[in-house]
């Protein structure tokens, strides 16, 4: 059973810019939560607080608490690499390493100390199958990942994330740069993963959110405006700003 995520009073500042304001939110185990909202409202920022990746950039200040299961991930004693192993992430732009396809997928397991070639092969094959890429790359695993198309690269990055067997999957507009065919494949993948992973997915594509998410959260200007079951959100939003956004009339 994947863990739940509980966010309490989370705020983020970039220098003086207040990018997230007192966000409190829960993600149930195994559900797919879609994050929607206008550009620059803090969706990526929110996602990056959930695996503490925000700290890599250096300039952000964070306050509030985030629980993964029972543990506060911002606890001083928290093991950050271990947290990130449990919380996988797929980025807005595909970012495969300039290595072979095999080495990309095997990267995570190798970090954990897996060196056995047979074991690695199994993991790589399974992950690529899960990410619906196996059929396109079997027999070409030694090729550089950079020779793949954009859509294939994004699915490779998903496979790479799945290979470490995380419990949570964070996806930042995973289909933003993809053609409809690849988009469909990734949506099917998310549907297939539902229940086994707790998934938080940012998207600008409202129909995509409606198709694949259990619940949807709407952000605007760093504030969580509303969160609820996707169907209810899209048919009868509680907040007038949500309605404006869904009908394309929202202005910040």
């Amino acid at each position: 059973m994947p863990p739940e995520i509980r966010v309490e009073g989370l705020s983020v500042w970039y220098d003086r810019h207040h990018a997230l304001k007192q966000v409190s939110l829960e993600v149930a185990p195994g559900e797919v939560l879609a994050l929607i909202g206008p550009s620059g409202c803090g969706k990526s920022t929110f996602l990056r607080t959930l695996n503490r990746l925000l700290e890599e950039g250096g300039r952000a200040r964070i306050s509030g608490r985030v629980f993964l299961g029972d543990a506060d991930i911002y606890d001083a004693a928290a093991d950050i690499p271990d947290l990130r192993r449990r919380v996988g992430m797929v980025f807005q732009a595909p970012n495969p390493f300039p290595f072979s396809i095999f080495d990309n997928v095997a990267y995570g397991p190798r970090l954990q100390g897996v060196t056995d070639r047979q074991a690695l092969r199994r993991i790589v094959e399974r992950s690529l199958q899960q990410a619906a890429l196996w059929d396109e790359v079997r027999g070409k695993l030694r090729r550089s990942a950079l020779t793949l198309s954009g859509g294939q690269q994004q699915r490779l990055c998903i496979a790479r994330a799945l290979a470490v067997e995380p419990e949570v999957l964070l996806m930042d507009e995973p289909t933003a740069s993809l053609d409809p065919m690849s988009t469909t494949k990734i949506e099917e993948l998310v549907a297939a993963l539902r229940g086994r992973y707790t998934i938080v997915m940012v998207t600008h594509n409202l129909r995509q959110a409606a198709r694949i998410s259990d619940r949807t959260a709407f952000f605007a200007e760093g504030t969580l405006i509303e969160v609820g079951p996707t169907r209810q959100m899209f048919t009868a939003p509680l907040d007038p700003r949500t309605e404006q956004y869904l009908t394309g009339r929202y202005e910040s």
């Binding site: 271990d82 980025f91 495969p96 954990q112 790479r160």
Partner: peptide, 14 residues
């Protein structure tokens, strides 16, 4: 690129 370092960190690399 910073995105590669982040990609690595996100997979649990120290």
């Amino acid at each position: 690129p910073q995105s590669l370092r982040e990609g690595s960190a996100a997979l649990g690399a120290t």
